[in-house]
Computed example of a mutant assay.
Amino acid sequence: MIATVEAPNSGYRFMPGVSQYSCGIAALPGFTIERVRFADPVPLKAGFERIAEILKRAGRPLAAFGACELRSPAPFTEDGFKAFNESYIQTLIGWGVMKDGVNPVARSNVCPKLDPPGEPSFHAFCYAVPASRAPLSFVIAGSGESVEGKANYRDHIVRAGDTSPAGMLEKAKWVLDEMERRMSAFGGAWRQTTAVQLYTVQDICSILEGELGRRGVLRNGLTWHFNRPPVEGLDYEMDCRCVYSERVMV
């Protein structure tokens, strides 16, 4: 099993990833992961403030913040994405959540093609709360069809620029393998997921049954967001979770 790390005073462990986000989190024994979705996107600064308030009302420390789902106006350039990430992590550093360059917070950041927000915003977030005898709960960060942690994305994109059925199949296989690798770090698998989200504006109908269905991804349905991944050149992204308590806040 891939090694995971306990995030101090958080209630969860994480699979290390890159500086802007971890590959995923799972609740520690005696805890469970809860998810809050905002009815409308909340701009980043105001979103962090609301999250801090929600954690305080729940009696949880800022360190319990474990995952988030962001929405951005349009895919970033490589340099634009780096600049955004440098800005984003400043709050995590200020909260004491991110230390020594290690970020435990999982993340997805995608771009709605229809009715996008005017600026990067929070769509949802997850945090750990005490819960005796709770079943395994986890959140897997979003991944597009490129290797993360390299100097850039463009030189590592699977079938770059190819949105044919064959191209999308290869992209999907790469991302599905990565989702399975991340889940395995927590002893998880598709059969345990309570939600799977797919982000693309390309036609993926040809791979739904043959690839996603064959792997068991569709066991509890699939939420297809008509969104683009966050970096120019990427066409396919997914994330997934096993979370038993979810609510929507206005």
Rank of each mutant, 00 (worst) to 15 (best):
R60Y: 04
P16V: 11
V147E: 15
P130E: 14
N85I: 01
E86Q: 14
T32V: 05
Y153W: 03
A46L: 07
W190I: 03
P104A: 05
C23Y: 10
G187N: 06
K173F: 00
L28A: 14
E209C: 13
E246Q: 10
K171N: 06
I2E: 14
Y12H: 13
W224Q: 04
V158N: 06
L222S: 09
G210W: 02
P230T: 07
V231E: 04
Y199A: 12
R181Q: 14
I204M: 11
A124D: 03
V231W: 02
T4H: 02
K99T: 13
P73K: 07
A39E: 13
M98P: 07
D239E: 08
G221R: 01
Y88A: 10
R35Q: 14
S245F: 11
K45M: 08
P165T: 04
L176R: 07
A131C: 13
P73F: 03
F125Q: 07
W224L: 14
R154C: 02
S121Y: 10
W190Q: 02
N220W: 02
W224K: 03
I89M: 05
E6R: 08
P41D: 11
S10W: 09
M249V: 13
L44Q: 11
A160P: 00
I140F: 05
K45W: 02
V129R: 14
Q192V: 04
C205H: 13
A134N: 12
F31V: 05
A185K: 04
T200G: 09
T4I: 13
A58G: 15
S87L: 15
N152K: 03
T200C: 08
V217P: 03
L44V: 07
F76Q: 04
S245K: 15
E119T: 09
A58H: 06
H123P: 00
F14E: 08
P135R: 07
D235V: 00
K171G: 12
